[in-house]
């Protein structure tokens, strides 16, 4: 009876689109039952999950060790604010320019570095991440320096200003949009090519996979998605400032994917939720030393459970059946 109900819920009777819609409505509706504080935490959580999904595609599925994901998140966030409120571009143009900027930067980093071995991509993206923070801090009136930019509001669209829990709905849409793109790519020849490149580039090339091109596309695409997420983030606190986009968060993202289970969408979600919420539970116990706990978790995952928590769950469910 229960099994029958599950099958009904999962397949045939519901088209893919409808399932996405229901997921979006449920995730958005939750925001309306929260206070302002919890809604804020919830929004940040959704953004972390979105970023982790994208980073998982790059690192977990395509095997590229990059530390630039937060720089692109920042490029998206800063560019939408600068384009809208300093250059006074119309909203859709500002969004497109922001995406174009991310793609341009991504190509500039990816094309030279993916042609070399993986180590160079890590170095190049680390440099980009650091450079980006320097540019933000030294950017004068354009970036607002160390204080960043504040005191702006999301412009009205079609005579409405989206805010409060409704804006949480926008973040949910971002998450669903990001996931649906990544899932489709992952289920296609492209996703398999990415995994093949990760596992054995020489064999992948012999199978007809253009290794450099695959890497560049995966890097550019996930970087552009991070940029779009950054644009959405810009109106969460209505302020953008440098520390958010630093290397620490890029490492945290890497930890989330490793702890959750690299290469699996569900792993990225679990890792992001766990490591995002852990400090809330840990701070009464260890204060600001939660980074220590994260470190132990990551080392434990790498040494004892390379499949991450999702791999642990797989083993558990397999042994039960």
């Amino acid at each position: 009876m229960r099994a029958g109900g599950f099958v009904f819920f999962k397949t045939n009777h519901m088209s893919g689109l409808l399932r996405w819609l229901i997921a979006a409505v449920v995730l958005s509706a939750a925001a309306f039952f929260m206070g302002e504080y919890h809604n804020d935490v919830y929004r940040k959580l959704l953004l972390w999950v979105t970023l982790a999904l994208g980073y998982n595609f790059l690192f977990g599925i395509c095997g590229q060790v990059a530390f630039s994901h937060f720089a692109f998140y920042g490029i998206g966030a800063y560019s939408i604010v600068i384009f809208l409120f300093q250059l006074h571009l119309p909203f859709p143009i500002a969004v497109l320019c922001g995406i174009a900027l991310c793609i341009l930067f991504a190509l500039a980093v990816a094309i030279p570095s993916t042609r070399l071995e993986g180590f160079y991509l890590a170095l190049a993206t680390l440099a980009l991440g650091q450079l980006f923070i320097v540019v933000l801090n030294e950017g004068g009136s354009v970036t607002g320096g160390t204080g960043g930019i504040a005191n702006y509001r999301l412009p009205e669209l079609f005579g409405m200003r989206v805010r409060g829990p409704w804006y949480t709905g926008v973040i949910v849409l971002l998450l669903v949009f990001t996931y649906s793109i990544l899932k489709r790519l992952d289920d296609s020849w492209f996703g398999r090519a990415c995994r093949a490149v990760r596992d054995n580039p020489e064999a992948a090339a012999a199978m007809g996979v253009d290794v450099a091109r695959t890497k560049v596309i995966a890097f550019t695409l996930t970087s552009a998605l991070a940029g779009v997420a950054g644009m959405v983030y810009a109106f969460v606190d209505n302020t953008v400032n440098p520390p958010i986009f630093g290397i620490e968060n890029a490492f945290l993202l890497l930890f989330m994917v490793i702890v959750g289970g690299a290469g699996r969408h569900a792993g990225a979600v679990i890792g992001a939720v766990l490591l995002f919420l852990l400090p809330f539970w840990l701070s009464p116990l260890v204060g600001h030393h939660h980074a220590l706990v994260f470190g132990v978790l990551v080392v434990a995952a790498i040494l004892f459970q390379p499949g991450g928590l999702i791999g642990l769950w797989d083993r558990f469910s397999r042994s039960r059946s």
Binding site: S188, D199, N200, A203
Partner: peptide, 29 residues
């Protein structure tokens, strides 16, 4: 042997068909 270790047998074979997929990246997205 150089299999793709992270992929099951059938997906390893599908990587071999990489160049035979007609769908463009856009149509996938």
């Amino acid at each position: 042997n150089r299999p793709f270790a992270g992929l099951p047998v059938i997906d390893n074979v599908l990587v071999g068909a990489h160049t035979r997929f007609a769908a463009s990246l856009w149509s996938v997205v």
